[in-house]
Design a binder for these strands. Structure first.
Lengths: 198, 198
DNA sequence: GTCTATATGTGGATAGAC
DNA sequence: GTCTATCCACATATAGAC
């Protein structure tokens, strides 16, 4: 609590690593991916530009943990949204709706996931976190389809469709966030009900 | 033809503007949006860094014309793909397939459209070009739906779904480009056939 | 662990010569 | 219309002091 008062020599308190992550999140949220620089993050955290290098190998390393945080947060939200309904088809629809909502509410965090340009083969933890998102859809899809391969196709179709709707809202192609969520959910239901044709 | 030989004083021939656009396309194709700088483009075109400013107000102005070119090229391709089939539902499916194909074949040009971060309200010609793409889908959608509002919802759903599939291939979530195209087309057919539920 | 200072690189943009 | 020269801002990253 009083860690801000005393400055032994260096200026920071116990957990600069976390403070940097938080500052980085703020920067990305405010200025987007392009505005994310270690220099800016350092300024926000109130430390010198050299300090981060004791906690992260380089700019990319910090960026990668941000992406991971975004995946975790998304998973948490989609999981919660899906838990509110019982029917498998409605779970998929709830996912689609929540997906669009996240994109709108946490735009930069959402874009980070796709635009960060990190090599996922070189960072298996990211690939895994991404796969975990789709994993949420497997159970309902399987309940709908029965067949494994068909279920997987349904998962991908629903997720892709949700993603498209999310991007279109952000681009201004789709009008209101509210309508966009409804339409994404409708599309998910349609795909689920016609899974045989996928 | 011999314009490269004589150098009156300045180094370039008749149409530096076009040469800059072409060079910029190459840069974006090779190094993506992040690699697009006026300095690099100038190097490619073989002129000094000051030269482009006689033809484009600034970096953004050149970028905007690239985005416009991307839209035009996309429109050309989708139009051609749709023209090859007669059935309205199949036209939508052909669009979805061509959309994914473009994303894969011309990745940087595709990403440019969405990631350039240009304000479309400030650049109406871009908004118009984007709308023209969706415009390709209006006629088939109307043939399927009859009702205007429903047709528009179908257009958006098909386009969003195609976009999602395109992004997922680029991300490596969907496996092969070939399967991805097929699945995008299938999803489009499903949405079209169930337009009543959208 | 954090700082200060610095090396190095890069890009955007303009002024003025030709 | 193009060049050369230059300014300015800014970022990444490291070395060495404390």
């Amino acid at each position: 609590m009083d860690s801000e008062v005393k400055r032994p020599s260096g200026r920071h308190h116990g957990d600069l690593r976390r403070a940097l992550e938080a500052a980085a999140m703020d920067v990305v949220a405010e200025k987007g991916l392009a505005g994310f620089t270690l220099a800016e993050v350092s300024r926000r955290a109130g430390v010198s530009v050299a300090a981060p290098y004791k906690h992260f190998a380089d700019r990319e390393a910090l960026l990668a943990t941000l992406v991971l945080r975004s995946y975790e947060e998304q998973r948490r939200r989609y999981r919660a949204a899906m838990a509110r309904v019982a029917d498998p088809v409605e779970k998929l629809a709830a996912f689609a709706s929540a997906y669009v909502r996240f994109a709108v509410d946490e735009r930069s965090l959402f874009e980070l996931t796709f635009a960060a340009g990190l090599d996922k083969r070189a960072r298996p933890e990211l690939a895994e976190a991404g796969a975990a998102l789709l994993g949420l859809l497997e159970a309902p899809a399987h309940a709908i389809c029965g067949d494994d391969q068909r279920a997987h196709r349904l998962v991908l179709a629903v997720a892709a469709c949700a993603h498209g709707h999310a991007v279109f809202v952000l681009e201004g192609v789709l009008d209101g966030p509210r309508d966009a969520r409804r339409q994404a959910a409708s599309a998910a239901r349609v795909l689920a009900n016609a899974h045989v044709a996928l």
